[in-house]
């Protein structure tokens, strides 16, 4: 389990993480020429605090609030038959209809791309967004599906068996930061 993981290095400290989020927020409003049709949707668990942080930055810059949603993709996973016990389902909450909106999916780490695939399937069950964009704090490579992010906080080359740990005060009770953990040699 998680016990044989040891921190290798810090990729983003609290200040660097805040700066990366600020830059992503700026890119999102620039790319979309304003934020009037925008909706930020975080993928549970740590996509949600990321979406909240981006939304707060956009509101500070543009002066009005962006609707926020949370997506639980558990029911859309392609590996349910491979896990020992079913994961806890925490539920999806979207602030309104998706039709005609620009949805920015937010997640902490982009890895195989399978979570994003599940999230896309989930989203279209709610309606037909005008477009869907993807914002991730960390892109660590090793894609297994043809999926790329539109907005990236930081690209980090990793080994496949390393783990990226993203912490938010809301979900982890610690200061925000990103670290690489590696499996301890036994």
């Amino acid at each position: 389990m998680a016990t044989d993981l040891t921190p290798k290095s810090t990729i983003l400290d609290a200040e660097q993480m805040a700066r990366a989020i600020r830059r992503m927020a700026g890119e999102i409003s620039e790319r979309n020429r304003g934020v009037s049709d925008l909706m930020l949707v975080g993928i549970r668990t740590r996509g949600v605090p990321l979406a909240e942080a981006i939304a707060a930055e956009i509101e500070r810059m543009e002066g009005h609030a962006v609707p926020l949603g949370a997506l639980d993709i558990t029911l859309y996973r392609d590996d349910l038959s491979m896990v020992a016990a079913q994961p806890v389902v925490k539920g999806t909450h979207l602030p309104g209809p998706l039709d005609g909106r620009v949805v920015v999916l937010c997640d902490d780490v982009l890895f195989t791309g399978r979570t994003v695939r599940a999230a896309l399937d989930h989203l279209v069950d709610y309606g037909r967004p005008r477009s869907v964009q993807l914002a991730v704090l960390i892109d660590r490579g090793h894609r297994e599906l043809p999926i790329q992010a539109d907005f990236v906080g930081k690209t980090v080359p990793t080994a496949r068996d390393e783990l990226i740990e993203v912490c938010f005060p809301q979900t982890d009770g610690t200061e925000q930061q990103v670290r690489i953990l590696e499996r301890a040699a036994r």
């Binding site: 029911l75 389902v89 539920g91 999806t92 399937d121 069950d125 709610y126 309606g127």
Partner: peptide, 16 residues
Amino acid sequence: ESFREVGERPIKKVPT
């Protein structure tokens, strides 16, 4: 509690 929300969606079906 989480599945109640599925019944309230426009498309009341998940691929689980």
